[in-house]
Design a protein around this nucleic acid. Sequence first.
DNA 1: AGATCAAACTGGACAATGTCAACATCGCGC
DNA 2: GCGCGATGTTGACATTGTCCAGTTTGATCT
Lengths: 206, 206
Amino acid sequence: MTPDRYHHGDLPNALRHAAADVITEDGLGRFSLREVARRAGVSHTAPAHHFGDVRGLLTSLAVEGFDHLYDASSAAVAGESDPAERLATMGEAYVAIATDHPAHCQVMFRTDVVDPDDPALREAGMRAHGVLRDTVRDLVEAEGLHVDIDVAAELCWATMQGLVVLEPKLALVDALHGMESPPTRVRVRRLTRLMLDGIRHADDRP
Amino acid sequence: MTPDRYHHGDLPNALRHAAADVITEDGLGRFSLREVARRAGVSHTAPAHHFGDVRGLLTSLAVEGFDHLYDASSAAVAGESDPAERLATMGEAYVAIATDHPAHCQVMFRTDVVDPDDPALREAGMRAHGVLRDTVRDLVEAEGLHVDIDVAAELCWATMQGLVVLEPKLALVDALHGMESPPTRVRVRRLTRLMLDGIRHADDRP
DNA sequence: AGATCAAACTGGACAATGTCAACATCGCGC
DNA sequence: GCGCGATGTTGACATTGTCCAGTTTGATCT
């Protein structure tokens, strides 16, 4: 890519990309702004001109992550017509995002390394959440259920997010129980099924 | 507590305590080993003699967190006889732990700042998980359900963990929708109800 | 076209951090 | 008593994030 010019051309993107690589390889704990700059081939102060400080860069990365999530969710929904199946595919997409873009996902839900008041971040998050909410609403209306849409969406989101966070622990538990861990896709399917059963039977309680 | 002696007496605990304070106040992103040592009133290299490096200290904190979780879960279970109610109370305890000991919880599930192979950490984690698994098993047996116990436990754990992680985002979503956020306890109850419905109706599928 | 000027980037400085090595002090067992 | 390991300290070093003053670049205006 157009080597050693003084002006990089698209440094912000290059920096985000490098940052994601660093986080993926070394973890957020060992994250270093200078290392990012080094990988992008610029001086150690160049990032400041685009993102202010390290928090700015990570916030920008989080925004990109929510955009990815929005795109993946939308695509998943578009590919299915049955509302329940839509929800399941969205769940798979959610977890796929987490494994395909681990760095973004680590940042997206870490309020301490990000500026939670950033307007772009808020907006990107809301857009992504909107897809989930709409899908849940479609399901509830199509099947005539009597659940609060927001509560049901909360369940879906929390479960998938929990699955993402707990994956390593779950694998460990399986290992120590002498069982081999199923692929993540299977976990998603199993949990989605249970969740759906819960959402569907929420109205007929004792 | 017994001021300025050369030997502190119980420095490991003091360091863990200070570390938890630092994380709670400044977040894991701004965590500093030297600041911890400063608060404990010892030199900046004292922690190394007990924990090796910063990762060792945080790992120790994670172990303590899982012990707290085990204690709280056990207490919650002991106070209830109905299996379903046990599960609900455990959920509340789980989230309460997260709000009462935020620093511990941040560390417990961050594989990058902790040594995941630490035997003490593994064992503490398994002990805590055992309480959940037992409770779910009791429920399944008492009500004669046909769910895989591990899958059901996975759902419970993932949902509660997701709730903990997403709390800030959920509050934000509520705010931007013009609704006021319910207390966390209410969230826990709502989700537990839905989960329970799912677990109970898992067998009768189309 | 040539001058101008803000945006993009560099390099050096500074305080703060994690870890290492060498040294000091306590207290327990012989 | 007295040694010796566990516990703490001081000093050093490379690395980090951010500030500041300068350089280079390319677009805009006349």
